[in-house]
Nucleic acid binder design. Structure first.
Lengths: 243, 243
DNA sequence: CGCAACATTGAAGCTTCTCAATTAAGGTGG
DNA sequence: CCACCTTAATTGAGAAGCTTCAATGTTGCG
């Protein structure tokens, strides 16, 4: 988006507890991986940092790198010929980027207000997967989790009214924050209303109106633009599946 | 749906060329698998046949079986509390059912006008995956392919107008039929208009109107209710990404 | 042949989108 | 640190598209 943004790539210490098969969400594999396996992993990892709005890669680029997010948030999106944009997902610490069967990335990945990642060569990971079945198995687990997320997204897009979509979105962000060890309730929204709109298949004005409406109905309190406090989680959950 | 439908489960010969890691779409693994590996696979497979509308399993059932479709079509759907239904996908010969990280199925799988499948115990497949890295690898490939399909579905739901959605749907069915070795052009639609509507997040009347409109505009010809001939694939493709 | 499920078509209503104006927030340079 | 400027967010009014309700036509199965 911001073409003049410099690539602030910088090496920093490899933190196995945050990389690939050791995501914060699924610590079980950490104990299972032996020390020499972890060191093999760290040898092929390269850590980088991206500034706000900066792209990890663009749609169509040769897909020879995969990523594991260690901090911040990343927005995955596809752009149609006429300029419309679909946000495929928001990824956070512990999430993996790179499940694709095509030689070129089918989406653009951009840091939302900054992100830190571990990058791996695709060939390196493939090779490591052949050497260490545990790595391949962990990749399958993460792909399966991605499928579940995508299917929830599908149901939200297909069956939800605008208010239902926004409610579901807030609850999802809250749940994800808790899963990675953060606070669940004052929900932090690193993305813009337009990002949310493109994720939910709505106009950004509609998203804004829904926030206002949910606040007027007493279900949420909008502290600042980027911080929403859930006042009535139950009512919000009802909203997100019934209206 | 039809509770009185009898389970017409029946054993038939194990056809490795149609099962699991040897889907019609991805024959490369077939050569890679050794004969004794194939025999291990066949030992844990059980083939079954389902009649029109019959359920392979329901949402919430204990998920101890996975499936590979060998013939026909299967509809995967989730139902919301208030009865609305989202069709997550239509699966055909060669497709795999069962990528889920939860102990219970998050969707219902039903045969659309009949289907044949190979079923595998989840534990058996997991065990085989540990023994044969190739199997685990093939599972990862199939999961990756599922992710790509889900993401296309997301973009269609989020950004498409009704006509775009229907156009994309027809082209997708055509492409999928070609991929599994069938005819691409007179597209065969085993599912009802309501099934399509629940897949596309539309009312079934809207789907019907879109078919009529596309026919009036000369892009398709509706031979019978379940057979659509694509007359102008290029215009249809333009529709599906621009409108 | 007749019934039930599926599909088409029409008209009215409602949700969401688009266009437009205003307000708030964030970042930069003086 | 403040003023300014740019970007993001809110709010309103009108238009468009989709849904709903209702009636009719079609298909396929017992």
């Amino acid at each position: 988006m911001n073409k003049s943004a410099m690539t602030t790539a910088a090496s920093f210490a490899f933190d196995a507890s945050r990389c690939l098969i050791c995501s914060a969400r699924n610590l079980n594999m950490c104990g299972a991986l032996e020390q020499d396996e972890l060191s093999k992993l760290s040898k092929i990892a390269r850590c980088e940092s991206f500034g706000s709005g900066e792209a990890l890669f663009h749609e169509g680029d040769t897909a020879n790198t995969v990523y594991n997010i260690t901090d911040g948030a990343v927005r995955l999106s596809s752009t149609l010929k006429d300029g419309r944009r679909q946000v495929i997902g928001f990824l956070f610490s512990g999430d993996f980027i790179g499940f694709s069967d095509r030689p070129n990335y089918p989406w653009t990945a951009e840091a939302v207000r900054g992100a830190k990642v571990c990058r791996f060569g695709r060939n390196d990971i493939a090779k490591l997967g052949r050497e260490l079945p545990k790595v391949e198995h962990r990749l399958l687990e993460m792909a399966t989790s991605d499928i579940a997320s995508a299917q929830e997204h599908i149901t939200m897009l297909g069956q939800g009214s605008a208010a239902e979509k926004v409610s579901s979105f807030l609850l999802m962000l809250s749940r994800k924050a808790a899963q990675r060890g953060g606070v669940a309730n004052p929900v932090h929204l690193p993305m813009t209303r337009e990002d949310i709109a493109d994720y939910l298949g709505l106009a950004f004005e509609t998203v804004s109106r829904c926030f206002t409406r949910l606040e007027n109905e007493g279900l949420i309190a909008i502290g600042s633009i980027r911080v929403v406090r859930i006042k009535d989680a139950e009512a919000l959950a009802d909203y997100s599946e019934n209206e």
